[in-house]
């Protein structure tokens, strides 16, 4: 029997490691601060707290689908259907409450159940039939855009239904905006709740840790006896739920349903997730990073709005450049980690 003890200090630095792990998200937060400071220095009224609060009003739906996307990407997959599912959910809200006259709370339940059910279905197809996530979710992108257009090819207003006023009902903090306070509508709180729940689920539950494990290596997770099927199907169900919820938030925010809304929202969500420090290949990343990624996106748009003479496409271009920078950064970090391996 041995009495010998082997000691090894953590040495190699890879993308998953201690400090290296925080480089991408650190860069995102630094960028966010730089954008904010730059805005404050250059524009009047940029230091109003409402500028920050507005990020969480305009981008609440994007934040929610990006959180769902974080789960999927962490598990090593991708979900292209979220933009269309979101648009369809908004349209379904309008149709159910305006045309069909169903009580709004019941409509919400129906829409959320639909989003989750879709996620379960496509997750099962991906897992059991080994269809690539890209292709399987592409089905959703086409299908729900088409179904949305079939319900209505023009805007549907929901102003007549009193229920939809609830989302933009707001709470003042520290007084009115003119007194240096800010306000947030209820729908922002829904988005915050999603962030917090997602954080807890990913970091403190078995399902969350399995998601990371499956994204790290599906084969290993299987051999370790983890519930791979449940995890993979679960993340798509979460993403579907989030997309439906985002559609509901959009209904609250605009009180109308546009059949061509949220085209390309899946790309914005993926970009926000990657800029938030999540590896597109899965296995590493943070929910709070996604929050930061969405805030960068919002802050870019805010800056462009303040500048006045710039157009909105600059946000897209900057987002692309950031995406490039982050992908190259992750690649460099991953390579330096590989090199140190013996």
């Amino acid at each position: 029997m041995t009495t010998q003890t082997l000691t090894e200090r953590p040495s190699r630095s890879t993308l998953f490691d201690g400090l290296t792990r925080y480089i991408p998200i650190g860069a995102t937060v630094a960028l966010l601060i730089a954008l904010y400071v730059g805005g404050v220095a250059n524009y009047d009224n940029f230091d109003s707290p409402q500028v920050v609060a507005k990020l969480f009003i305009d981008n609440a739906p994007l934040l929610v689908i990006a959180i769902g996307m974080t789960f999927v990407i962490l598990s090593g997959g991708i979900d292209l259907s979220v933009g269309s599912v979101m648009a369809f959910s908004t349209m379904a809200c309008a149709w159910l409450t305006v045309d069909a006259g169903i009580a709004a709370p019941l409509a919400l339940v129906i829409v959320l159940a639909f989003g989750t059910g879709w996620g379960l279905l496509i997750g099962a197809v991906i897992h059991y039939f080994n269809v690539q996530p890209f292709i399987a979710t592409l089905v959703g992108l086409f299908l729900f855009r088409g179904l949305t257009l079939q319900v209505s090819d023009t805007d549907v207003s929901m102003r007549e239904v009193e229920f939809w006023q609830w989302g933009m009902t707001h709470v003042d903090f520290f007084g009115k905006v003119k007194d240096g306070g800010f306000w947030l509508p209820y729908l922002s709180f829904v988005a915050f709740a999603v962030v917090i729940i997602a954080f807890v689920v990913l970091h403190y539950t078995r399902f969350g840790r399995s998601t990371y494990a499956v994204g790290g290596s599906e084969q290993s997770a299987l051999l370790m006896g983890l519930p791979v099927a449940r995890t993979k199907i679960g993340v798509y169900a979460i993403s579907g739920f989030c997309a439906a919820l985002a559609g509901i938030l959009a209904a609250f925010a605009t009180k109308s349903a546009n059949p061509l809304a949220n085209v390309g929202a899946e790309l914005d969500a993926i970009a926000a997730v990657v800029i938030g420090g999540t590896l597109l290949t899965g296995g590493a990343g943070f929910v709070l990073g996604t929050l930061a990624g969405v805030m960068v996106w919002g802050m870019l748009n805010t800056l462009i709005a303040f500048q006045g003479n710039l157009s909105s496409w600059w946000a897209r271009i900057v987002m692309g450049i950031l995406l490039l920078a982050f992908i190259l950064l992750q690649r460099v970090l991953a390579r330096s980690g590989e090199k140190r391996r013996t």
Binding site: I78, F134, L267, D268, I270, A271, L280, T281, S311, W313, W314, A315, R316, I317, M319, G320, I321, L323, L324, I327
Partner: peptide, 17 residues
């Protein structure tokens, strides 16, 4: 899929530019 995603996102912005 990642490498070409960058231009998928930024490309239309460049076209608008």
């Amino acid at each position: 899929i990642v490498a070409t995603l960058i231009l998928m996102i930024a490309g239309r912005g460049i076209a608008q530019l």
